[in-house]
Design a protein around this nucleic acid. Structure first.
Lengths: 141, 141
DNA sequence: ATCAATGCAAAAACTTTGCACTGAT
DNA sequence: ATCAGTGCAAAGTTTTTGCATTGAT
C-alpha cells in the first residue's frame, strides 16, 4: 500500500519500510524517536529490528521523506514525516508538547540573510522553547 | 584570572573550570565539542579528565555561560561561549564552517508568534544550512 | 536466481556516574 | 579541616556495523 511513495524515492518496498512509513503517516502530529517507532511496531505485533528502524529512518531522511530533529534537552533524535510544507517548532519545556507553525516573514528574511552572506540555503530549522500558559499543561516530573 | 566570571555564576574557581573558560574565551569564533576542549587542553599540557570537561560544560550551560548546539549531521553536542548578544547560525554543508548572524526582524517575529500561541519564550535557536559560494570553501572529504 | 534488505548480536560513539582522592577556602 | 570538585574506570545511552539469513523482483 505504501508501494507508490517508496518507489518514488527509489526505495524497494519491504515490510519494515512500509510499516514505518505507515506509522509516520498515521501520526503526522507526533515526533518519533527510533525507539518510539520500534515500540509502536512491536505493540502492533509488527516485529521489526531496532537496527532496521534506525536504518530505515536514515534512508527516509536521505530520501527527503522525513526530517530529523534534536530538540533541546532531548538526547535522542526524533523524526517526523515531511509533508511538503516547511514548518518550525515551538516546544514547551514544562510539558514537552511540540507545536508547529510557519511564518512567511521569517522565511523571507532567512533568504535575504543567506543571500547577503553568499549562501545557497538547502535547509533550515527554527526552534522556540518556552512554557505554554495553558492550564492543561502537565509539568514534566 | 577567570576568578570573577566563575564566582559571578556561583561556581568555585578550580583549575579545570578556569582553563576551559579561558579556552572558550580565546576562541569565541569556534564551536567546541567536549572532545575538542579535551584535546585542546591536552595539547597545552593542561591535563583535564574528559569526564570533567563534560561536567564543566554542562555546569557552564546551566549557569548560562555557554550554549549547547546540535548541528545537523553532527552527532556530538558543541558548545560556544555566550557573549550576551543572541545570535543564530548558518552552517556550510560543504566545508562545515559556521557563520553567525542576528536579525532584529526575525527576533521580533518570534515574539509575536509565541505570544499568539500563548507561550513564554525562554530560548530559541535558528539554524540555516547551505553551501557557501566562496571560492575558498574546502569540501569535506 | 539474484542481490538488496533484515535481524541479531556485537561494537562503536557519546555521555554520565560511582568512588576514592585532591584541592580550594 | 571541610566539603565540593576531580580523575579514572566502569556503566549507560543512543546509534552503527558485520554477517548469516530472508525476501522482493
Amino acid at each position: 500500500m505504501k508501494n507508490r511513495e517508496l518507489k518514488k524515492v527509489g526505495l524497494k518496498t519491504t515490510q519494515p519500510r512500509a510499516r514505518i512509513l505507515q506509522l509516520l503517516e498515521s501520526n503526522t502530529d507526533r515526533h518519533f524517536s527510533a525507539e518510539d517507532v520500534y515500540r509502536c511496531l512491536l505493540e502492533n505485533e509488527e516485529d521489526v529490528g531496532l537496527a532496521t528502524v534506525y536504518r530505515v529512518l536514515t534512508q527516509f531522511e536521505a530520501a527527503g521523506l522525513v526530517t530529523r530533529h534534536h530538540f533541546e534537552g532531548g538526547k535522542l533524535a526524533v523524526f517526523e514525516l515531511d509533508q511538503g510544507v516547511h514548518h518550525d517548532h515551538l516546544m514547551c519545556l514544562n510539558c514537552g508538547k511540540i507545536f508547529e507553525f510557519s511564518d512567511e516573514l521569517i522565511e523571507e528574511r532567512q533568504k535575504i540573510i543567506a543571500e547577503q552572506l553568499g549562501f545557497d540555503i538547502t535547509d533550515h530549522a527554527l526552534y522556540l522553547y518556552g512554557k505554554c500558559r495553558k492550564e492543561n499543561c502537565e509539568h514534566l516530573k
